[in-house]
Amino acid sequence: MMLEAREISFQYEKNSRMILENFSIQVESTDRIGLVAPSGFGKTTLCKILAGYERPLGGEVLVDGKALSEYRGYCPVQMIWQHPEQSVNPRRRMRAVIEEGNQVDPSVVDGLGIEADWMNRFPAEISGGEMQRFCIARVLGEGTRFLLADEISTMLDLITQSQIWHFLIEETQRRKIGLLTVSHSEELLKKVCTKLYYLETKTWG
């Protein structure tokens, strides 16, 4: 399968700065691509567009040649956000986060080190690192073909970061899920990804 952005452009308001202009990228199922760019280059915006949270002004996003917006129900492209605490409902227990995913396999929950006891807690009762594990498990249900990770480990400690990434690399490799990662740390991307793309110079490395 392939996730493809064709000549997409984006700006938040008319007459404001163009955040993306005629940008194209292709992600294969076996790819782990790291995006490197200075801040203000619209990396988060790009992730949102590729996952269908925002619509590009020009160009299109295709999954297997079919426009992303035509997919109904569970979206084959899922995104993990930087701030897990904004991505879970503060009034629902953590169990609900997993249940909201599309039949998340218990092996995913185990693999991420989620303990049974956390399931009954509310988001305020667990740490950011633990919450991010839930957010990752939620998008690894059946039907996920591509995963976008936007600075997912910036707020976590180094060991948690390493744990989560080791799991993600293995899981995406095994299930042939294409991965596109954004991080400010080039060193991290070098460890995680198979290819790096420099947005500023539009070159692969």
Binding site: S127, G129, D157, I159, Q161, S162, W165, H166, E187, K191
Partner: peptide, 21 residues
């Protein structure tokens, strides 16, 4: 030491477990 080893440049190793609640 485990933190140090988990830095990407220093091996990106992880140890199991989590910080206790």
């Amino acid at each position: 030491r485990a933190l140090w080893k988990a830095i990407p440049q220093n091996g990106f190793e992880s140890i199991p477990g989590i910080q206790p609640y």
